[in-house]
Design a protein around this nucleic acid. Structure first.
Lengths: 246, 246
DNA sequence: CTGATTCGTGCAATATCGTGCAAAGAACCG
DNA sequence: CGGTTCTTTGCACGATATTGCACGAATCAG
């Protein structure tokens, strides 16, 4: 059976059942579980589904509540957020991308931190309501439902007129060859503009992002200033990229 | 069964029954009580429910309804929201101002309503996450902490380039002489632009807003198309303004 | 106060995961 | 056709996650 057929089958089945169970599928397709898991990993890297222990779920939050979804890697994300929150300094201008990991970071920000936050995510902006010393600049645009952030020419344009110190970027893949990548073309374009707008780019990555690649490149690894992740720095990390262990 | 599905099931069931009993659920799902207890512990750690002896209860309502409920006129606002939600029709372009009353309105919107919402409030935008058919246009700007909405030249400019059907405006005063008023000068300017951008302006007002005035005028009463409020229409309401009783 | 229920924790069994490695097959090139 | 390289696949193995059970502590109902 061809790989592409199998992956298509997995996506169809996912659309029908709204869940996938790796072991069952392996038996049904007559392959090893390893193969299924590899397929799921690939599809997850492309943003076509979300991996969970035992199988996978649809990428868009249709039937599994987003609240429950935030529980995926919850512990890891919280630790990443707490560590990365320490990297910010008073007076900085900080671009914060959307995503649950960055939401965890915002929750971990000190109430006495005095920075300017620029974001195109309504969720991030709303979460900063009780940080009285943080000035928030909201970037508008058409809301892209899949990730609940603003997108489009307006958004692009607004970021291109900003000079920030740090960009806290969300990615779905980090790979030695393809660099920082994500699953949506327009989102990739916008993220590229965000990276351009900041002096330094910082990525918070759970283990499932490292060494994988998604369809659309944001920027090469050389543009990555700091990587916040668990454990040891990957061997392929550029010398100029600082590794921050949680 | 996937862990995340079980947790989602628990949340759904909690939303339906307003309570969970661990032992019953264990029997129903065919797992041990320990597993259920562990799930409940995880969900409680995420703040999605509150543990009690024997099971769990809903957490203090989500940030949406929480904000909508923390006001003194909580019940009134909810009723206003439900009534006003009925005024919208498929295909319309709707400007929604910030504020807890409008948040209550968003919470009351039908999941099958197909409109385009334009808003400069991150809270409103975030609350529309689960309304899959509603297109959301987010207007950016500097966040004004007092009311958690975007303000400034950018915001102003964005609204001036929009033609909407309805503007759901928030005011702090409605008075026969001064018209629609609010407490901040720049906010008043922005709200005036919003009124200009819409064919019709609708105000949801609790009783404490009627007949009182705030320092800054948004627009004269003549621009008010509909007033949604409790009880009888005030005598000073212009003839051309339709009164919608809750 | 007492019995029953529920809770939390440690522990062991099972399931699942990620990675390295080798074999089989496909693609490519000369 | 022969050789080389790359991809895919399955397997082994150690690491991690999940689950059920046991047991003592805490809590509840009457």
């Amino acid at each position: 059976m061809l790989t592409l057929h199998r992956k298509t089958f997995l996506l169809d089945r996912l659309a029908r059942d709204r869940r996938l169970h790796a072991a069952d599928l392996a038996a049904e397709l007559g392959t090893s579980e390893d193969t299924i898991r590899r397929d799921l990993r690939d599809l997850a890297a492309q943003g076509l589904l979300v991996r969970v222990h035992g199988g996978a779920l649809p990428a868009s939050p249709t039937h599994v509540s987003l609240a429950a979804r935030q529980g995926i890697h919850a512990g890891d994300k919280e630790r990443l957020g707490r560590t990365a929150a320490q990297l910010l300094r008073d007076g900085q201008i900080v671009i914060i991308d959307g995503g649950t990991t960055n939401l965890a970071l915002v929750a971990a920000l000190s109430k006495s931190l005095r920075v300017t936050v620029v974001t195109h995510s309504p969720g991030i902006a709303a979460a900063l309501e009780h940080h009285a010393l943080i000035e928030v600049i909201l970037i508008g645009g058409r809301i892209f439902r899949h990730s609940m952030v603003a997108l489009g020419a307006e958004t692009q344009n607004a970021y291109s007129r900003i000079r920030a110190d740090i960009c806290l970027l969300g990615v779905t893949g980090l790979h030695p060859d393809t660099g920082m990548t994500t699953g949506d073309a327009e989102e990739a374009r916008l993220k590229a503009t965000m990276v351009e707008a900041a002096a330094e780019t910082v990525v918070l990555a759970t283990a499932d992002k490292l060494g994988v690649t998604s369809p659309w490149q944001i920027a090469p690894l050389a543009r990555l200033g700091r990587l916040v992740a668990k454990g040891e720095p990957p061997g392929w990390l550029p010398d100029r990229t600082e590794f921050v262990a949680v």
